[in-house]
Nucleic acid binder design. Structure first.
Lengths: 169, 169
DNA sequence: AGAGGCTCATTGAAAATTAAACCAAACTGA
DNA sequence: TCAGTTTGGTTTAATTTTCAATGAGCCTCT
C-alpha cells in the first residue's frame, strides 16, 4: 500500500508550467522571508519568527500561553520554542511562569517591555508587508493567494493523515 | 522624503481580510518549508536549500557555476554558500575548482556522486511537492499562485530600487 | 608603476535551529 | 498502589546560518 511512496517507480514529474509555478513560489518565499527577517532584525532586534511569538502572546488572554500551545500556533517544535523563549527572556520581553494546574507546565508571558517593543515595531512591520505584498496585488490576486495557501496549509496540517507532527516528535 | 518610512506616523493597518491572507501565507509557507526540509533531510541527507544548490548545478553547463553566480540564483549570501559548499564537499557531492580566467574565482562543480544523490532524491521530492501543492490546487489556482508570487518576487528583486542586496552586503 | 577601490571568496565566532536524549509530573490500567 | 506509558518541557550536542573581518586578485586612474 505504501509501496509507491518509497519505491523506485518513475514519479509524475512536474510539467514546464508547474515548474515555473513552484520556482516562482520558492523564489518569492525566500525573498519575502529574508526581507521580513531583515526588516524586523533592524527595527525590532529580532527575527520574524520571534516577532510572531510576541504577537501571538499579545493576542492571548492575560497575554500568556502555555509553551506547547504557543509552539503549536507558531508551528515550531517545543525545543525551538524553549530556546527562543530563553532568548526573549534575556531581553525581558517575555517571562516564564509556572502553571498552577500542572506542575510540568509553563506559561510564556508577554512583559510590559515586550508589549512596548511590539508597539514600536508593529507599524514598520505592517508597512513592510504592505509594500511587499498588498500594494502590488489586486484584491482578486490577494484573495487567490490566500485561498491557495489556505488549501496548501490544510494538506500539511499535522492532524489527519497522521503525517509528521513537528511539535510532537 | 524618507520621513514616512521611519516616523511614528500611524501606518495603514491591515484589514481583517488582508490579515487573513497574510496569516494564511505565513502559516502555509512555514509548514511547506518544514515539510520539504524534513522530506529531503530524511531521503537525501540534506536540507532544502542544499538540494536547491545541487539542482542548480546539475542544470548548469558543465554542471558547474561560479560561487557568486550560484549564490545569486539561490538567493543566499556568499558566506552562507561558502559554508554550504564546504559541507557538500565533505560529502563528495560537490568539488571546488579554480577559475582559470580569474584567480580569485572558484567554481562549484557537481560530482558524479552528487549527480547520483540527486537522481535518487528527485523522485521523492517531486512527489512531495506534488502531494503538498499541485494535487490540491486547480490549474487556475496554480496559475494564480504563480502569478502572485511572481509579482511579489519582482518587488523584492535586489536590482532596481537599490534595496537590500543580500549577497552583496 | 602603483595607490585606491572593487569584487570574489573564505574565515571564525556568535546566534539560531534541529535532533535526540532526558527528567519529572500526570495518567492508565491491573 | 504501583509499573508502564504519555505528556510537558528542557538540555546537550551537532548542524546551519548570520555577522563582521580579512585577504587576494582585478581594475582604474594618474
Amino acid at each position: 500500500m505504501n509501496r509507491a511512496s518509497t519505491s523506485e517507480e518513475e514519479p509524475r514529474w512536474l510539467t514546464e508550467e508547474e515548474q515555473r509555478v513552484w520556482r516562482s513560489y520558492v523564489h518569492a518565499a525566500t525573498l519575502l522571508e529574508d526581507h521580513m527577517d531583515r526588516q524586523l532584525q533592524r527595527d525590532a532586534g529580532m527575527p520574524h519568527v520571534y516577532y510572531g511569538l510576541l504577537v501571538r502572546l499579545s493576542e492571548s488572554p492575560q497575554r500568556r500561553l502555555r509553551m506547547t500551545e504557543l509552539a503549536m500556533h507558531a508551528k515550531i517544535t517545543r525545543s525551538r520554542l524553549s530556546h527562543a523563549i530563553a532568548r526573549l527572556e534575556k531581553n525581558s520581553w517575555v517571562r516564564r511562569e509556572d502553571c498552577p494546574d500542572d506542575k510540568r507546565g509553563q506559561f510564556a508571558v508577554l512583559t510590559e517591555q515586550g508589549t512596548e517593543v511590539l508597539r514600536r515595531a508593529a507599524p514598520g512591520h505592517v508597512t513592510a508587508v504592505r509594500n511587499a505584498v498588498f500594494d502590488r496585488l489586486t484584491p482578486e490576486q490577494q484573495k487567490a493567494l490566500g485561498e491557495a495557501m489556505q488549501i496548501i496549509a490544510e494538506g500539511l496540517q499535522p492532524n489527519e493523515a497522521g503525517a509528521d507532527l513537528p511539535w510532537l516528535r
